[in-house]
């Protein structure tokens, strides 16, 4: 039990501290790295309570894919400089009320959820039969996800697909002045198209037009 407690407090302290560091650190790239550390310690906590599948999926999806794209954007855009300018200017105060409102809403939502879970546990126990069945984590998740909640699951997949297509459509623009490389054209080129033998007259040279 002691070892369990030690691990739990280590991971949770790392998670909380790195979550604070995400918002506090000046360098944006550092805050993304702290975010990654946060994700990793949270997935460790997931594994500790026996939700191994969720922990691994957290690692694969959030750390392995989402955070990489975060890093990409942050590194490319030089956000750090913009953020510093933004904080220095007077205009920044406009955003504080909005942020406060949103964080209060999230805070109250968390209080409601955690309070309800603590004092009225029966509300959240939708399906007790899974706990006793002795199946592994992955199996029981699959059995719920692909039977009772199949429609919600499929709809969430569709929403993600639509979001992806939407993002592509919004950012896609056909540029006309760019030389595009056509794979098929390149490999189907014959020698005759590229090379020609020319008789060059002395002192005349060859006129090339390209």
């Amino acid at each position: 039990m002691i070892a369990h407690a030690i691990f739990f407090y280590t991971f949770s302290i790392i998670a909380v501290v790195s979550a604070i560091m995400v918002t506090v650190s000046k360098n944006t790239v550092h805050s993304v790295f702290f975010l990654i550390l946060d994700f990793i310690s949270i997935s460790c906590l997931f594994i500790m309570i026996g939700a191994e599948f969720l922990g691994m999926i957290m690692l694969i999806v959030y750390v392995g894919a989402v955070a990489v794209l975060f890093l990409f954007v942050v590194m490319m855009l030089n956000v750090a400089q913009q953020k510093n300018q933004w904080f220095a200017s007077a205009a920044s105060s406009k955003h504080i009320p909005v942020g406060l409102i949103i964080s209060t809403i999230i805070f109250f939502e968390l209080i409601i959820v955690i309070g309800g879970w603590k004092y009225k546990p029966e509300i959240f126990d939708v399906n007790n039969s899974l706990k006793v069945s002795g199946l592994s984590n992955t199996h029981s998740l699959g059995q719920v996800l692909y039977t009772d909640y199949i429609h919600i699951f499929q709809i969430s997949g569709m929403i993600l697909l639509v979001a992806m297509v939407g993002a592509i459509v919004l950012t896609f623009r056909q540029r006309s002045n760019v030389k595009r490389q056509s794979y098929l054209k390149q490999i189907s080129r014959e020698r005759a198209e590229g090379v020609s033998v020319v008789e060059v007259a002395s002192n005349k040279g060859v006129k090339t037009d390209d």
Binding site: E52, L59, I60, V63, V68
Partner: peptide
């Protein structure tokens, strides 16, 4: 239990 997911996760962290 989730050995292959672990392998996949670790190899995706390699980046």
């Amino acid at each position: 239990n989730v050995g292959i997911l672990y392998l996949f996760a670790v190899s995706s962290l390699g980046v």
